[in-house]
Design a protein around this nucleic acid. Structure first.
Lengths: 343, 343
DNA sequence: TTGTATGCGTTATCAC
DNA sequence: GTGATAACGCATACAA
């Protein structure tokens, strides 16, 4: 039992409650509640007195308690594995802005921090879980289904049959083909694709489509798949793939821009190759830094705005709505890291 | 009034509650509560039955309701203005990991999304608010104080007298001096400092210290302050500052790495200057991409680990503990964008 | 060890 | 328009 705190006293490490405000304003708790509920019936006079008291005390409606009563919070769980990845961080920036605009809150979870306690998001009664990276663990899928929370997977592997999840997918296959065609047009004779070892399906899809398309062109493809989705992976791949010789690799597709930038920089500054004269490099994502003049990376762009818009649509669907599938088109962005087409 | 849902029925858009579990396990609700409270008294037998039922239903303790009872959540509000900034995103990545390790949750707020509704964080009864960018609005400071929430400011302006906030500050003044001394040793005769227009005190401090130190060396400094803390700001500053002439600027200090990279790239690729031969560039932060071989930016490093550790210490302090001030040392990192010292 | 009763801060329902 | 009262899901003091 806590002692009733004097209305104007110093903070005691406790949050101000509606009861505190009611006491100061000389009204009942329900009146305070109504004053903060849009469309509720309160006299203008009482309302003003209440708001004044609230302002004085620094009162804020406890949305946790409100959620209790409504069984649906305005929290959205956002899961990512590496927020310093240039594309992920751009995604997060755009998504958090968009959530904020719809008055939803972003409960962030870094899945890189070990044990997949992603289920903990449900402890906070998130209305939706959004996955930016990693595969959706079966336990999480089941947990969301059992608790009626929506799930939005962005460029993630398609979950097992019967799992209810919204899918936002950039057109990986088309992107992979675009990359392949571009390298072919550049006259590449011996190309490689660098995939991270994590083998997320979106990245695999990009690589698969790239390989199939290259097969049509009759151009051999070396596959390099190891390590996380990171710059260092690109660095190591470049060191391994770009060994001098008469059949040296002359074109590389990195399945993410971060990987491609690792390849690009290693080729240029460590191995002394000229890009695009000696080596053509193409990426996938179109992260902001890819356009910097220090890189000039030709890449397959996943438009961030479209991705974010589709994500927000799925997020704001009512819990019982059928899952949606949203395909986001991609496009080639020329920047100069691939040789000009031969005519 | 909702109908009691069949234990194994399909999800009805509602979260599973302890009552549901109790029903299935044939025990009271309190027993369920105890089974999930570490150190509570439950028979091993009941406990097993309860956990099994919980597993089957996909039950998760509602931490929102638990918070209600404890008046202290494990939510930490994290405020940033631009998550795609290379240093901020690295900070966020490290911080979210560290929070997760202490079983705290990260409630993210993007302050760039307009109206400073930062007060909304308190609606979720966050135990602490962490500011990564922007200045702390007075209203937020007051709100936190009145509600007994801690506040941690990372490289932010010192709040008004009497405001209780933990401060984590990299040694801006020392960093600014280090930058100045380094450019002086490189033989620069005419330097500039590029500050963002946002004028956060940490950035101003860096610039001030730089200017004072340069004055000691008798080297004139041009100040350029406009635009946000972004790459483009560096680009525009470079275009404006690096006009050809016999007294051209031969050294530039960018108060953040992102700005410095904008300067560096513009000088190299747009203006055709050689760095460091024609122009020395030095930054502040040591973002991961500054070390990439495409940049090789000499910079003042704020060690991320120390920053994060200090932040976590402040975050985990009890609400009533006195505010702490933690100074984080900085150091010069040589990478080649500044000319070798003249002897 | 177990269940009952109470309180946490809120909203919704109900008399007045 | 207003105030009492009953939920909401949980933890806990207390009784059994």
């Amino acid at each position: 039992m806590r002692p009733p705190r004097p209305p104007l006293g110093p903070p005691r490490g406790r949050f101000v409650s509606a009861a505190d405000v009611a006491r100061l304003a000389g009204v009942s708790r329900s009146a305070v509640s109504r004053a903060f509920t849009p469309g509720a019936q309160v006299s203008e006079q009482a309302r003003a007195r209440i708001l004044e008291a609230a302002e004085e005390l620094g009162y804020r409606v406890n949305r946790l308690a409100r959620t209790l009563h409504q069984d649906r919070s305005d929290l959205v769980g956002v899961v990512g594995g590496n927020f310093s990845n240039p594309y992920i961080s751009a995604q997060l920036d755009a998504l958090s802005r968009a959530l904020h605009a719809r008055r939803l809150q972003c409960l962030l979870m870094n899945s890189a921090s070990g044990g997949d306690d992603l289920g903990r998001l449900l402890d906070y009664r998130v209305r939706t879980v959004v996955l930016l990276s990693g595969a959706a663990p079966d336990t999480l899928i089941r947990l969301c289904a059992q608790n009626g929370a929506r799930m939005v997977l962005i460029n993630r592997p398609r979950p097992p049959e019967g799992a209810r999840a919204d899918l936002v997918l950039a057109d990986s296959a088309h992107g992979g083909r675009l990359a392949a065609d571009r390298l072919a047009r550049a006259g590449c004779q011996n190309v490689a694709v660098v995939i991270s070892g994590s083998r997320t399906s979106a990245k695999l899809d990009r690589a698969e489509a790239f390989c199939s398309e290259m097969a049509l062109h009759g151009i051999p493809v070396t596959r390099w798949a190891d390590g996380p989705n990171s710059y260092e992976t690109g660095v190591e791949a470049a060191r391994a793939l770009l060994i001098p010789g008469d059949r040296r690799v002359d074109g590389i597709f990195g399945v993410t821009d971060e990987i491609a930038l690792g390849v690009l920089n290693t080729a240029r500054f460590e191995l002394g190759l000229r890009v695009p004269e000696d080596l053509s490099v193409i990426g996938f994502d179109d992260a902001p830094i890819s356009g910097w003049s220090s890189h000039g990376l030709t890449t397959i762009r996943q438009p961030l705005e479209a991705l974010t818009r589709a994500t927000m649509e799925a997020i704001t669907l009512p819990p019982e709505a059928e899952p949606v599938l949203c395909a986001v088109p991609v496009q080639l962005v020329e920047r100069g890291s691939v040789r000009a087409p031969i005519t």
